[in-house]
Design a protein around this nucleic acid. Sequence first.
DNA 1: TCTGGGGTCCTAGGACCC
DNA 2: TCTGGGGTCCTAGGACCC
Length: 417
Amino acid sequence: MIALVDCNNFYASCERVFRPNLENKPIVVLSNNDGCIIARSNEAKEIGIKMGEPAFKAKKKIEENDIRVFSSNYALYGDMSNRVMKILSSESSKIEIYSIDEAFLDFSNIASCKQKALFIREKVKKWTGIPTSVGIAKTKVLAKIANSIAKKYCKNGIFLLDGINLINRALKYFPVQDLWGIGTRLTKFLNSQGIYTAYELSKCNELWIKKNLSILGLKLVKELNGISCFPLENQISPRKNIRTSRSFSSGITKFEDLKESISCFASNCASKLRDQKSYTKKISVFIRTNPFKLNSKHYIGLKSLDLPTATNDTLEIVKYALKSLKSIYRENYIYKKGGVILHHILPDSNLQLSIFDSINREKRKSLMSVYDSINNKMGRDTVRLSVQGQNRKWRMKQEKLSPCYTTRMSEILNVKI
DNA sequence: TCTGGGGTCCTAGGACCC
DNA sequence: TCTGGGGTCCTAGGACCC
């Protein structure tokens, strides 16, 4: 058996842990730049706030219902996630951390799955303050369904989906568009073929599924029928792409300002790359105007560079990123977003040096290791390149940011007695 | 005024090889 | 008269996920 533990309304719950007075009150969390609503408490969902809705469109509902609004605080959510995952890891020898707020746990050889799930749920709640739901079933896809049932209908927050009759009943009621792996396009297609429930999909001909929904669709159908096709991935595999991109709070026109932001993004990518002990051989940079502005000129610039030698050196990655930027920058546009992407990522065991290489890589490696250790200890960007700049005109809008209660000494919670 | 960020995997089609 | 067959590898674009 596999258990899927999923934190309820995770970002909203993280904010609420440190504001117990907001218990039972509607709250929402906004995306970067305070743009869209990306998390809602149950109360906010009941009011009809939609996932992904732009904040300015929901303004009236927010004011009328006195909904509390937070900018996203990833330092807080990341740290809370680590705490939750640490507890889950202590309860199962095999665990796959699937996202910031959910994990699959191996529940084979457990005498009572329900009891175990209840125990885990209570422990996470007591130790972190985060409420969770647990779905238990034979395959990941069924566990996802079980979890969704647990969230909606089970007071104790857990649901064991087992036995052919119970599974069939659940699949008959489960809409096909809510299945893991079925998005809007496939929903439209399946509906056009008269398929509306998970049960109807599970009864489809496998050849037909493979032809129309690809190999992933076929695996999904098998999983619905209790045949495991998505095994529990115990190890964290290194990223195959690394990206840092941001919308700018106000539009940027000057090359100098773009240069600053792209340098910061590139430097951030380089740090992430070194964190996972990899190297990159391909760097892309993009800049774009605001697609929602209908009355102004639009432009998207994208440039990829293949590097002669794989690297994870900040200086080198920034240098290539700026070279790309120069080739795509056009005057007289208002840029709203930019980013850096590293592809073609290699582990350090696969490195091949170029005979024309002019960089002393041993020396640079030492430099980067000092650079990282200072920044890890003293905070991000304590040491940085001067090209990354000071004024950061493009900085994110975060008007409703909560304190970093768990990661910054100066912002730790005060209790008055 | 105002619309996020970071991933994965699959497939078709082109380039290239013998 | 008139030009095969079978591969591999890479990439862009699409779909999906949280």
